[in-house]
Design a protein around this nucleic acid. Structure first.
Lengths: 211, 211
DNA sequence: AGATTATATGAGCAGATACTCGTCTTGTCA
DNA sequence: TGACAAGACGAGTATCTGCTCATATAATCT
């Protein structure tokens, strides 16, 4: 990984500035997209100067990198707690809740950077980093499915995991940009959708193999 | 709607240029995103000059407009054929196939402009246009669901329709950017996902109302 | 053919944007 | 307290990008 910062803040002042800058960047990128969120605007919203911004970040991409890094470690922490738990005794519905509830809660107060940076053609680095994280998550999910449904092949598990992750991520993103009333409903539907899909996958291999 | 073209091409030469420009624009936007696809680059790929580009299109947004317009009318034609047909006698699986197969075929040779322009922060006009088209489609789908499952409320139909549209669109987009082998599989899964979801919706209201 | 219209061209302009640098202020530590 | 480092600042620069315009060529019409 490239050097993330030009100069690590050593004083409290510097650290606070970096936090303000990241917060401002997150807001602006959410509002305008990565390209339109100019470094000058980010500095302005953080109530500081471009000079200060470039004292800590070597270039614009480093800001995106920092945001994505933070996002990924937060998400990893979120999932680590769930993946450690033993879900084998739970019903499918309970297991899905265990997996999605933390993410839903997280998305209540944080942005879906995956969606934002998955299409940030401006910096292939970021796109690839987000893609790698996605792949990592799908791998974990795939293992979970494999341990739960031993009759499924590895490849099927991977495909199912990918579908579930894509669909869940997308619907949560949609929920985030919807009005509050719809938002909750969409998340509920996301869960129902995944439960229905996985039940279907499960049945297909255990029950009749005709249709 | 705003004037789409600065000067309508009246000679065969002009019409061919416009087509080349639109093709180049579609390619570049797919590769780089709307923002990074510069008008100079579009003209260059179409093997013409910026002057010629601006002879037909008043500004960059007009190129996006033209692409989206064309995309929407093609999609509308695609769905019109399906919506006219009577799907009430078909099984859920057959009905879903009738709806999705044309879209899958279309996406085999065309880009998913919906995904691309849904996040084009550069021109709110385009975003809104795509959103309106999405809404139109969801309305149609909702009616279809309502006529098929009379026990569902209007609001439920709308929510289900929205979920189905979002999920189908997203997965088809993912399929488009995957390798050929995965691509087909994802589309199959998209269908299975929707079938599983709608079966689930259907059962929930007819069968037991406990879980 | 002559006139008029349609199309082609690309140097260059105005504005925006990522980023630098010299200067100033604040903190730290002997 | 003095000296050095960390941080703050913002005018300025190089570059890019959407777009214009003066000029040249090709098609069409009378």
């Amino acid at each position: 990984m490239m050097t993330k910062m030009r100069r690590l803040p050593s004083q409290e002042r510097g650290l606070a500035r970096v936090e303000l800058l990241l917060k401002a960047a997150e807001e602006l990128i959410a509002e305008l997209g990565y390209d339109r969120a100019t470094t000058n605007a980010i500095a302005a919203r953080a109530e500081t100067s471009i000079g200060s911004l470039y004292q800590f970040f070597p270039n614009k991409e480093a800001i995106g990198q920092a945001l994505v890094s933070r996002y990924m470690s937060q998400q990893r922490a979120l999932f680590a707690a769930v993946f450690e738990r033993d879900l084998s005794g739970l019903s499918l519905e309970q297991a899905v809740n265990q997996l999605l509830d933390p993410v839903v809660a997280y998305y209540g107060s944080h942005l879906d950077l995956t969606t934002i940076f998955a299409t940030a053609h401006s910096s292939p680095e970021l796109v690839q980093q987000v893609a790698a994280f996605n792949h990592e998550l799908i791998g974990r999910l795939s293992q979970l499915l494999a341990s739960r449904y031993s009759q499924l092949t590895t490849e099927d598990c991977q495909v199912y995991a990918m579908v579930v992750r894509e669909v869940a991520g997308h619907l949560l993103g949609v929920a985030q940009t919807s009005e509050a009333r719809l938002s909750g409903r969409i998340m509920t539907e996301a869960k129902r959708l995944i439960i229905a899909y996985l039940s279907h996958c499960e049945l297909e291999r255990t029950g009749d193999n005709r249709a």
